[in-house]
Design a protein around this nucleic acid. Structure first.
Length: 580
RNA sequence: GCGCUUGUAGCUCAGUGGAUAGAGCGAAAGGUUGCGGACCUUUAGGCCGGGGGUUCGAGUCCCUCCAAGCGCGCCA
């Protein structure tokens, strides 16, 4: 928060000079210096202005340094080839830290009202969650939390796969099972699990693969379902219910905030599909081709170099996933009044969303709406191939989480035997789940990342447990000293260099959060938190807190660090621990 | 064939056009009559895939080549 304030301060002070040279578009930006001995922040504007000002950068820097003079700097230094390096006064840092502690860590400063629709997780009915769903769910949830922390109105949407051919396949083979359960008046939840539904789906898919008549039968079931067949609809409801109750159990373990009221599956749009096609026709966007309705846009090329069609209605009259997504985009703009719509899906769908967004733009639907595809890469095994079980199947999310908790338990059990058994299990859950989430979120999302238990559960390096450990140590200080954090409120005295580094790092929190809000890349926040935890542990190592003449100041630094770590971890959907 | 994404230390990864490219792991050497050693401090280790270009300045922007992954008409 302080850095931005100084930037605007300098901006005002330098305006006359920039006006003199007729420069209007140069933004004043400060960057941290390479080393604390060179001051806190560096201004490189002089380097950029050399041409416009027709002066050597070093001369410009000298003129700037004279104008910048202010009580919040204790030192202003001009360095070759034209940097103006600034050292902040203790008072400026202290005032900012105190302000930060009083104003929600500086998170909602100059926040603009915005309605953000975010589409993530997107589970399929009658299929268990597997590792492929992990990233969308975790990344989407983290982004949602970050946006909420910035005061945005966030509308979560779980775009369930619940209205396509796979559902018909399940219904086909599930019907006899469901009838039997009914006849015996048994409780559906006790008799049918999601795993069994998935088994049924697999049988059915296999039966359809090589047999055209089976396939046609499923097509007929799909049409009947979509036309409102009572029995099929009842069965569909049952299957959805069985599926989602298992999904919510997992969301709960994961700490994911999606709720039933966020469910907007494909089925939700079933009565809007024809309207969507009509709207496209009205925009003159569609052409008939080989019996299907298509949108042709020049920027998309097919294999043979011709223009690639986007099929919005199949030749049999049915709708496909482009139709669902187009209906959804209209709903989100017209009904949900979105200013920004975010889709969190894997990178294989990049082309799909480019097409959908292009169509929305072509029809003028999204003129005042920002559409963004948050694409992410695959989770790889240690062999650098997509993560699978030994037998080559997708790894179930439930199994993955179970293993994370078990592995965390054995670490906790080894490292901290003073905890009660109950507490160990609780800690294992928070550490295990946190480690998996952090490993995912801390990597640049567009890249594939390698899933390695040993690395993510390590207590050092850029890991979830390392951050949780830093937090736990701070809590331990307050416990040991029997101090209530609320009674600590500065001022801060920066005696050691590491304390200054820590204070300045704390002040960068809101900037890190803003960068995630803007770029939708959660790893930026992870990197920040890791750097903060790293600086803190060095401070912890070098500076005694409880037995120190600077006790109150250092307790204040501890308190601020703890609050930032806790707030940051919360945005990532990770629990902060008081002991571990 | 066309398109998208990626290529940074032995490994896993950071790196808003700015100063000497940084972490962790692994390797080598140290540190506790102190608040949690699940930690910290040193050292070694790099033609930032290759080659051109733009710029006062390029890991970062542009072009081109190479390699890997993914996608490209009626599955979602």
């Amino acid at each position: 928060m302080l850095r931005e304030q100084i930037e605007s301060l300098i901006s005002i002070k330098l305006k006359p000079l920039l006006d003199e040279w007729g420069v209007t578009d140069t933004k004043i930006e400060l960057s941290p210096t390479p080393s604390p001995s060179m001051g806190d922040y560096a201004l490189n504007t002089a380097l950029r202005l050399a041409k416009a000002a027709k002066m050597p950068p070093i001369k410009i820097a000298e003129r700037m340094a004279g104008l910048i003079e202010d009580e919040c700097f204790s030192k202003i230094e001009v360095l070759n080839p034209g940097y103006v390096n600034l050292t902040l006064s203790q008072k400026a840092i202290n005032d900012s830290l105190i302000n930060m502690s009083k104003c929600a860590l500086g998170l909602q400063e100059d926040s603009v009202y915005e309605r953000v629709v975010i589409d993530y997780s997107g589970v399929n009915i009658a299929k268990q969650l597997h590792v492929g769903h992990l990233r969308s769910t975790i990344i989407g949830d983290a982004i949602s939390r970050v946006l909420e922390s910035q005061g945005k109105t966030v509308i979560r949407q779980n775009h369930l796969g619940d209205w396509g051919l796979p559902i018909a396949m399940v219904l086909w083979k599930a019907q006899p099972v469901l009838r039997e359960i009914e006849q015996k008046s048994l409780n559906i939840e006790d008799e049918l699990t999601l795993a069994e539904l998935e088994e049924i789906y697999r049988d059915s898919a296999a039966a359809c693969k090589d047999d055209q008549s089976n396939r046609e039968q499923c097509q007929l079931i799909l049409v009947a379902l979509q036309n409102g067949d009572k029995q099929l609809l009842d069965d569909w409801h049952t299957i959805t219910q069985v599926s989602m109750s298992e999904v919510y159990r997992l969301y709960d373990v994961l700490g994911v905030k999606l709720k039933e009221t966020d469910e907007r599956g494909e089925s939700f749009y079933r009565d809007m599909l024809q309207d969507t096609i009509d709207a496209l026709i009205q925009c003159n966007a569609v052409k008939e081709s080989d019996g299907a309705l298509c949108v042709f846009m020049d920027q998309f090329k097919a294999k043979d170099g011709s223009v690639l069609p986007v099929i919005v209605q199949k030749s049999d009259g049915g709708f496909n996933y482009e139709t669902f997504d187009l209906a959804a985009i209209r709903y989100r703009i017209n009904e949900l009044k979105a200013d920004r719509i975010i889709y969190v899906t894997d990178s294989r769908q990049i082309l799909h969303f480019e097409q959908i967004f292009a169509i929305a733009d072509l029809c003028g639907w999204s003129d005042n709406v920002k559409l963004e595809h948050v694409a992410f890469g695959s989770v790889l095994g240690e062999d650098n191939k997509p993560l699978k079980t030994r037998s080559g199947e997708n790894i179930k999310l439930a199994d993955l989480m179970q293993e994370a908790i078990e592995r965390a338990y054995s670490v906790v059990n080894e490292k901290n035997q003073s905890l009660s058994e109950e507490r160990k299990q609780e800690v294992a859950r928070m550490v295990g789940i946190g480690a998996v989430k952090y490993a995912d979120l801390s990597h640049e999302r567009i890249k594939d990342y390698v899933f390695a238990w040993d690395r993510m559960l390590a207590l050092d390096g850029n890991t979830g447990p390392y951050l949780q450990y830093a937090h736990a140590r701070i809590c331990s200080i307050f416990r040991k000293g029997d101090i209530d954090e609320n009674t600590i409120d500065g001022p801060v005295i920066l005696e050691e260099i590491i304390e200054r580094i820590l204070a300045l790092k704390l002040l960068e929190f809101s900037r890190a959060v803003k960068s995630v809000e803007k770029e939708l890349r959660p790893h930026l926040l992870c990197t920040y938190l890791y750097e903060l935890a790293d600086v803190f542990t060095r401070f912890y190592d070098q500076c005694p807190v409880l037995n120190s003449e600077f006790r109150d100041s250092r307790l204040f630094l501890c308190k601020m660090t703890r609050q930032v770590l806790a707030a940051g971890l919360d945005m990532l959907g990770i629990d902060a621990l008081s002991e571990m």
